[in-house]
């Protein structure tokens, strides 16, 4: 209990101070609400719009999760395939890098054309944005094994499969989770961006849709409420990854859990 407080206490305190300053600044400087609503106003709007925010949260959560899962499966399988052969890696990895630099948002209209509007397109945006960190980090983990260990196992007659199972795969775990931590945030961002440009409206609308929706209607407080919920989702994803990695890797790699970006 005490540990939990030590963990979340300081950022919580910072949050309270910042909210206070924010509220004070809005009052004292007389900043109009449509430029910068006070935190109270944002909170009030969040309550009023809670139905839309909740369903937006749910929809974005689902799309982000599916996008991240797809990126995880494809990223890990891709990394395994690339790790099996230098030739494959040399031929394909540059394309993975290129894929990362493609402005995915600009591709979104094409996704609509190819796979239809809404969910699938949004997931595709999230998937592509989230893919690379997982692929690159996992690949790095699979190939950056200690050559001496590989020699050692070979000497005892171990085949590729055994070396993969006993050395490469476990060695890649911390790298994989580093990738996951980056990708978890990116999946949420990708989903929201996707929803902004090709997302579903109505019941299936995600948070990204409501960002545009509220901005179109000049409702700055609603925009803020949406951004806060989105940020909350991003943090939840990140923390889920931290939790998952310490669950899976347990005690052995605690030092590796420090985020590196």
């Amino acid at each position: 209990m005490r540990r939990i407080f030590e963990l979340i206490g300081p950022p919580l305190l910072v949050l309270v101070i910042i909210l206070g300053l924010w509220s004070l600044a809005v009052r004292l400087l007389g900043i109009p609400a449509f430029v910068l609503p006070s935190p109270e106003q944002v909170f009030e709007t969040a309550i009023i719009e809670s139905d839309r925010l909740m369903s937006g949260f749910r929809n974005t959560l689902v799309a982000s999760t599916v996008g991240l899962l797809a990126a995880t499966v494809v990223g890990v399988l891709g990394a395994i395939i690339l790790s099996t052969s230098r030739v494959l890696e040399r031929a394909l990895y540059p394309w993975a890098v290129v894929l990362q630099t493609v402005p995915v948002v600009a591709l979104a209209p094409l996704f609509v054309l190819w796979v239809g509007p809404g969910f699938v397109s949004v997931v595709l945006v999230a998937f592509i944005i989230a893919l690379f960190p997982i692929l690159a980090n996992t690949l790095m983990g699979l190939v950056s094994t200690d050559p001496a260990l590989i020699d050692l196992l070979r000497m005892q007659g171990a085949g590729r499969a055994a070396i993969f199972r006993k050395i490469r795969l476990p060695n890649s775990l911390p790298y994989f989770f580093t990738g996951m931590r980056i990708s978890a945030g990116l999946a949420v961002i990708g989903t929201i961006v996707g929803e902004m440009v090709v997302g579903r409206g109505g019941e299936k609308a995600g948070l990204g849709y409501y960002v545009v929706f509220s901005a179109t209607q000049l409702k700055t407080d609603f925009v803020f409420a949406t951004i806060i919920v989105s940020t909350g989702l991003g943090i939840a994803f990140f923390l889920a990854m931290v939790g998952l990695s310490s669950l899976v890797m347990g005690r052995w790699h605690e030092s590796e859990l420090r985020p590196s970006t």
Partner: peptide
């Protein structure tokens, strides 16, 4: 397999295994 033992300059242990499981590594093959 097992008739030659090789020890390197550094320990080269598997950080994800306990001491006991590290010692078992080559026997698993």
């Amino acid at each position: 397999p097992g008739s030659i033992g090789f020890v390197f300059q550094d320990a080269h242990l598997l950080p994800w295994r306990t001491v006991h499981r590290n010692v078992e590594l080559l026997l698993e093959i």
